[in-house]
Amino acid sequence: MSSFKEFKIKWGMAIDLDKCTGCGACMVACQAENNIAPQPDASNKLKSLNWLVVYELTNGKPFPEHEVAYLPRPCMQCGKPSCVSVCPVIATDKNEEGGIVSQVYPRCIGCRYCMASCPYHARYFNWFDPTWPEGMDKTLTPDVSVRPRGVVEKCSFCHHRFMQAKDKARVEGRDPNALNDGDYITSCTEACPNGAIVFGDVNNPAHKVHDLVKGKYAFRLLERLGTDPQVYYISRREWVRRLGDNYLENEKVKG
């Protein structure tokens, strides 16, 4: 396994699960932003393509002790991604400042080895060519290329917005590598009406997310497997935090 770079900038998310109601606005905003095709029947969740999926979590107790929580799952942009080293053709990599795991569609041969490696199911395959209802393809944004069938895709943290923010900084004479908090946020972050997602540079103390990820109630999914995700979750509810990783019966949960 290859070693991975450390980056000066590390884009990350802090998602407050106590604020998410599972309304789905982020999922819709993601599809529209990233030119993901709609599906007339998306009831087979194992074959419906959406970079961001909201999982339903339950504390497993019967009524009336039952509690429910919703967990939006973008790509974790792992610090040590299990998907990158396995790709036979370097279609995915983690080499750009910011630490976003890239996926280059014209390079992908569609072997799906990366999908097998990802325990978060963050990677999706284009089982068919994407189609839009007649005329709806006119609403495609110019920012993200449309993927043909046969390639794997995943959340890119709306990487194009990063590029746009840098270009805007350049024409305004600012340093593109020192973006202000909020100059670059993902489509889901922007859309969430509850403000459940905070996005920014985890390494930059001027960004709100920097402190949030260090909070007492912050955790990451499957931390002990060593993937080192750049997406953090926050919940004051212990049972929610416990569902973030596998625990043996006698093990204590963090926070």
Binding site: E96, S102, S145, S156
Partner: peptide
């Protein structure tokens, strides 16, 4: 130039 040869510098 702060350029790099990373994939996502030039791909979308």
């Amino acid at each position: 130039t702060n350029s790099s040869n990373a994939c996502f510098v030039c791909h979308k």
